[in-house]
Design a protein around this nucleic acid. Sequence first.
DNA 1: TCTGGGGTCCTAGGACCC
DNA 2: TCTGGGGTCCTAGGACCC
Length: 393
Amino acid sequence: MFLHIDCNAYFASCEVATRPGLAGKPVVVANETENGGGVILALTAEAKALGLKRGIPLFQVRNLIKMNNVIICPVDHKKYRRISHQIMENVQRQEIVQDFVQYSVDEFFGTLPTDDPDELRHYATQVKEMIADTTSIPVSCGLSQSYTLAKVATHYAKHYKGYNGVCVLMPENRQKALSMLDIADIWGIGRQSRAKLYSLGIRTAQQLVESDEKLLMKIFSVSGLNTWRELRGIPCIDLHRPAKQRSIMQSRTFAYMTDDIKTLEQDIRTYAASCAAKLREQKSVCRTVQVFLSTNRHREDLAQYRNSIGVHLPSPTADTPTIVKAAVSALHGLYKEGFLYKQAGVILTNITEEEGMQLDLFSEPEDQRHRKLMQITDAINKKFGDDTINFGL
DNA sequence: TCTGGGGTCCTAGGACCC
DNA sequence: TCTGGGGTCCTAGGACCC
């Protein structure tokens, strides 16, 4: 049987776990910017009880936050990665869960070698309690015959107190569980698919399960069909993913809107350089540098423009100057006067392993000359912080 | 005033091959 | 009027995830 572990209100739980005095208080984690922007990313049960929700901009709830002394924690991804790594190691060391894989920063999957509901509940409870004891992070566990059904079980574990955080979904109670579940709560059904299914009169997971396979294939293609099969208890999702990222991205929504290409260029240079550093850290090279630019989509009164351009490099590289140069040229190709820009970013794609890299017969030996320099800057930044030293290009 | 950031996979369609 | 039949590879964009 498949096990799914989901950390409850993960970012907020990490803050409560690591900062004494936060327990029992309304806490929200937000990516606050210098001019008061930012949205709520995670919140504790106490904060939820006040009516706050994930995803709402802080400026809309300033009063509520002030009146109730809600604590705002700035988002700290490094901390969250560290704690999830710890959870990963602890569960593996415990040797109860098999094929344990990390799915995201706050979710894990594995299997248990039994289909006895009592044993499953017992094992999952042990894992859950071990995680709480060692990291103070509360988690919910779901168990069933496929990854998707295990996530359905976790949904119930989270929303019904009686489960004590562990829900086992067996074939005999599956129909009832799926009849009570809105299709929007199924893993793999997003906004677009939900709208299409609603218009066909399909609103519950059970109705989806009973729908015609060919119809679903026509509308949603293989990914939708996989979801349908998984809900019927036929596992067909493979979580084995390459260890290295296939794309590397950095982007920001600016505090202000700007039409100044010099300002944009400065930002693009910074993003490109930091993407290149990430690329080298995973010992990869890339062949395409993509840049995107966008106006403020929330301002309907202003002229809108968004676009992206991908620049192909003559040969795969992780060389900062080469990547930055490509990003800047892409930016100049994209930029149009007369718009106020709010967001920009750089994405590295067509990533391959550095080792066994195909060398271009005609490429310049520039890469070689920069290599030593980048090894040193990477080492310094790793030791003293990301922006300690950078390229003045 | 103020509205996140970082990923994956799939598909259609174009360009090209013989 | 009528205009092969297969393929592959690449990319942009959409949909989804957290």
